[in-house]
């Protein structure tokens, strides 16, 4: 780990000012992603801006019928929150399945959305394109854990798989993020936060420069809504997803009024399966063909040399999700 200066920010505004004032300054929250990246010297901040004592701190509060989750809220608090468990089940499931109890105590929801890929080339010594190099080593290398969607050379130079569990859950729950940037406060749909990397922006988010996330907003629960998050791991616990599915539905009588599907671990960013959502929306529950829907979900999959298994795996998870939410 390289040396760095250390400062605390008492408010989001102070954090933004500190970032803007210091070249190479980086925000420190839970540290579960940043500290390992600093140890590997992949991220080398000149200054760490510690926001863990800013106000408002962690917490989950009602807002406009929905929930405001402050950015510093640890995943463990979301996993055990009664209201999250009742109205936003997918998020509770995702937080329970993420990492380990210790990491969930440390890792914040804001940091979780901004975490870097677990790609072993990115985390290793190789100068991959995401790190400013020329090549994606995984594309023709060891890519068993990598993306089967959004991975064509013209689409994304990086073929890693997004590691977050809460992100797909929040996408399916139609969450928004709010934050502070030098230009003032911002607010955007979570879906807009995630973007495939480009040579100009070698990251997976559109977070404004020198900006910080201050909270995640969940809309008010809708009648007939339910959600869940399913994750396949290479061992029984403590692993990033080989594939994950977050499913949200609103059902009225026999009709699917609304459906949102978000996928994790199968593309460089978590993303919504809009086409299958469209197929589901307005359909009669009793008339659904889960097998067909699952086939449609992976119709665009373009596996790499070692990860063809992810398509049937994802179909299996999705069928199971449908079965559990819709019977």
């Amino acid at each position: 780990m390289n040396n760095f200066s250390y400062t605390k920010a008492g408010t989001p505004g102070e954090a933004v000012s500190a970032l803007a004032a210091t070249e190479g300054a980086v925000i420190l929250a839970g540290g579960t992603d940043l500290v390992p990246l600093m140890k590997e010297e992949i991220v080398n901040p000149s200054t760490l801006v510690d926001i863990t004592t800013w106000e408002p701190r962690a917490g989950i509060e009602s807002q406009g019928g929905g929930l405001l989750i402050h950015a510093l809220t640890p995943l463990s608090a979301l996993a055990s929150n009664e209201r999250v468990g009742r109205d936003y089940r997918a998020l509770a499931d995702a937080c329970n399945l993420a990492a380990t109890p210790q990491l969930r105590n440390m890792g914040t929801i804001g940091g979780n959305l901004l975490q870097q890929t677990r790609c072993w080339y990115y985390r290793g010594d190789q100068p991959c394109r995401l790190k400013g190099g020329e090549v994606c080593f995984a594309r023709n290398g060891e890519n068993e854990k990598h993306a089967i969607f959004l991975n064509a050379p013209g689409t994304s130079f990086c073929v890693s798989a997004h590691p977050s569990d809460p992100a797909p859950a929040l996408l399916a729950l139609n969450a928004r993020v709010e934050g502070e940037a030098p230009g003032g406060p911002f607010d955007m749909a979570l879906e807009e936060l995630f973007a495939l990397p480009t040579d100009e922006r070698r990251s997976f988010t559109t977070l404004p420069a020198n900006g910080v996330i201050t909270g995640v907003l969940l809309p008010a629960p809708q009648p007939g809504s339910r959600s869940l998050y399913l994750k396949a791991m290479p061992r029984a616990a403590w692993a990033f997803a080989l594939a994950s599915v977050a499913l949200y539905v609103e059902v009225e009588g026999d009709t699917v009024k609304e459906a949102r599907i978000a996928l994790g671990g199968v593309a460089p960013i978590p993303f919504r399966a809009h086409r299958v959502e469209h197929d589901l929306r307005g359909s009669r529950v009793s008339g659904l063909d889960y097998r067909e829907l699952a086939e449609a979900l992976t119709a665009d999959a373009s596996p790499l040399s070692q990860n063809g298994y992810k398509a049937p795996l994802l179909r299996g998870l999705f069928r199971r999700a449908l079965l559990q939410l819709l019977g």
């Binding site: 072993w120 290793g124 080593f137 290398g141 061992r235 616990a237």
Partner: peptide, 25 residues
């Protein structure tokens, strides 16, 4: 252990990607 044959290097020389059983296993 996973090895990138083109580069000749081990890519999972750690306890994250080299997976030993947990209590849940």
């Amino acid at each position: 252990r996973r090895v990138d044959e083109h580069l000749g290097v081990v890519v999972n020389a750690n306890l994250e990607d080299y997976k030993i059983p947990t209590m849940a296993d």
